[in-house]
Computed example of a mutant assay.
Amino acid sequence: MEPICIVIADDHPLFRDGLRALLESVPDTRVIGEATTGTEVIEEAQALQPDLILMDIKMPGTNGIEATRRILQTSPHIRILILTMFEDDESVFAAIRAGARGYLLKGAVQEETLRAIRAVARGEAIFGPAVASRLTHYFSSMQPTGKSGPTHFFPELTEREYEILTLIAQRKSNAEIAVQLILSPKTVRNHVSNILSKLQVADRAEAMRAAWTAGLGQFPSEDL
């Protein structure tokens, strides 16, 4: 069998060196590139077309979540395994929405890392034990109330933020949202800023598309 061709995206040289040494110690994986920023890994993915990318979340410039989203827009066949120190709900769910096929913490033992790489390369979805436990707890705690809410689509958002995102999906301006919710324009702007940060999107248009994807509002007949 051909080895799994891998790009490592992480801004810590010692961690990259350790991963490379691990991957070079087994016959079924091959490192074909490395990147230290989100912009670099997007370029590497386009140029090298690897089978799999090991993606950190926090990197200079474009973060790993946004890099994942952009890579999969043009190269959906590439598998992406998030390998990070962050296990908070916000990061986990943002990675899943961006299209990552796996999520593993950097403290994982080498055997676990290799198993995850092989599983994701086969097309499976794989999550480390700690992350899997959080996902299981989240989905088991969901109550079928019959109405949409932040626990159903965007668990990282507060109820107010979810309400504002819903109005953004309806193409409401900040001024219109302020009037409808009886809030000051400054308060609305602060909520919108928090929404962009939590969803890890670059601007209002991307937040709107994320909301449409989740079923809030409808996709327009043509792009914004």
Rank of each mutant, 00 (worst) to 15 (best):
E111G: 00
I82H: 01
K58W: 08
F93K: 00
V131W: 00
L135Y: 13
T145E: 13
I117M: 04
S140Y: 09
L81Y: 00
Y162F: 13
G107I: 09
G107D: 10
L72G: 08
F127E: 01
L54W: 05
D89S: 12
K147F: 12
T113P: 01
Q49F: 06
F93Y: 10
E87A: 13
M142A: 14
A130C: 12
P155L: 06
T136M: 14
F93E: 02
L52S: 01
V120E: 02
T113N: 01
S75T: 08
M85A: 08
T84G: 03
E156S: 15
I65P: 04
S148H: 12
H152V: 13
G123K: 00
T136S: 14
G123P: 02
L135N: 08
P144G: 03
L52A: 04
I80C: 06
L105T: 02
A98R: 02
P155M: 10
T62H: 07
L72P: 04
T145A: 10
F93P: 00
R97M: 04
E124C: 07
S148V: 09
V109E: 14
T74Y: 08
T74N: 10
G99Y: 01
I57K: 05
R69N: 06
M85R: 05
I53W: 04
I164Y: 11
P155S: 06
I96Y: 01
D89N: 12
A119F: 01
D51H: 11
I96S: 00
E159Q: 15
A119G: 05
S148T: 15
K147R: 15
T68R: 06
I78P: 02
Y162D: 02
T166V: 03
A119Y: 04
I65A: 01
Q49I: 13
R115M: 04
R118H: 08
F154N: 03
E112G: 11
P129C: 03
F86C: 06
A67P: 12
Q170R: 12
I53G: 11
